[in-house]
């Protein structure tokens, strides 16, 4: 996402045509994404029809249901509804943990690759990129197959005598975590790699001349310089993890729902409550935009310094 904001154009050769050149992207994204998101906001304030479907009637009931519990018959004094907050909380810590784990494994990997001599470096990079290009669904299914009760991992652990009976991993929070971590690990490695590759190692030399211990050099000198890459990696892992659907659905079963599963059930499942689904999606989008806003602010502040 740390994309190419063109600060000053090198050339304005195409300036007279720029309106026409921008028009296709304005039109397609504006009409088919921006407008739909606004429409989704409207939908979250509509009323669900009894058997499914939507009535164009203003109502706060979706947000009311999200935040307040009024009992089975709807006539008890409202209390805070913890169910959906809990699902959001689970999603947040799962995504956060996945980000931290990806960072712990991804940073050394990125560093290692970036410091290879240039002819082997591209090979290492190639090895990391392949899984990134493999279909996410297939990777998640592979993980599901690997860790199921009678799956290869359990069989193998039993064969080498480490365990006596299969460990249940599937349909647990652990499985979801593994799935998220596994899905988005390449997203962490690539931006950090890009940052480390540009890093000027003369700084390390200078530090070594002053007898600074290596790990302190990493912490105090390298990390602040490559921080934009690290933060970009964290966002690229955290944001998709937060709204993930495949990992919780295929690996977590119905008891470890994350936000993605909750939303999907409202539209594709039996719940059939579009306004509520739109409201949940709206809450998710707001959280993501806040995270991105904080990122953009810190990015701007960092480049000012």
């Amino acid at each position: 996402m740390a994309g190419l904001v063109p600060s000053s154009g090198k050339s304005a050769a195409f300036a007279p045509a720029r309106i026409w050149l921008m028009l296709p992207s304005w039109a397609s994204i504006g009409f088919f994404l921006l407008l739909p998101v606004l429409l989704m906001l409207v939908y979250s304030f509509l009323t669900k029809e009894f058997r499914g479907g939507v009535v164009w009637e203003f109502s706060l009931s979706s947000y009311d249901r999200f935040f307040l519990d009024r009992g089975l018959f709807g006539d008890e004094p409202p209390q805070i509804e913890w169910t959906y907050i809990a699902i959001f909380w689970r999603s947040a810590w799962q995504a956060g943990l996945a980000t931290i784990l990806c960072l712990i494994v991804g940073f050394p990997t990125a560093w290692f690759i970036a410091t290879r001599p240039s002819h082997t470096r591209s090979l290492w990079l190639f090895l990391i990129t392949i899984p990134y290009w493999v279909n996410l669904l297939i990777r998640t299914v592979s993980m599901k197959f690997l860790i199921r009760d009678n799956g290869p991992l359990n069989e193998w652990l039993m064969a080498i005598g480490l365990i006596d009976a299969p460990i249940t991993m599937i349909n647990t929070n652990f499985a979801v975590q593994l799935g998220l971590f596994y899905s988005y690990l390449p997203f962490m490695v690539l931006p950090i790699y890009a940052a480390v590759e540009r890093y000027n190692f003369a700084l390390n030399e200078a530090a070594a001349d002053l007898y600074a211990p290596k790990w302190r050099v990493l912490w105090l000198i390298v990390l602040p310089v490559v921080r934009p890459g690290v933060i970009a990696g964290c966002i690229l892992v955290f944001v998709p993890s937060l709204g993930a659907f495949l990992a919780p659905d295929l690996l977590g079963g119905a008891k470890n729902w994350m936000i993605g599963s909750l939303i999907e059930d409202q539209f594709k499942g039996a719940a059939g409550n579009w306004p509520f689904g739109a409201a949940v999606a709206m809450v998710l989008l707001s959280i993501v935009l806040v995270v991105l806003f904080i990122y953009a602010r810190s990015h701007a502040r960092a480049s000012e310094q």
Partner: peptide, 12 residues
């Protein structure tokens, strides 16, 4: 996978 899911989809 359920009568209710079918109804929701058709209504949707």
């Amino acid at each position: 996978d359920s009568n209710e899911a079918m109804l929701a989809s058709l209504k949707g």
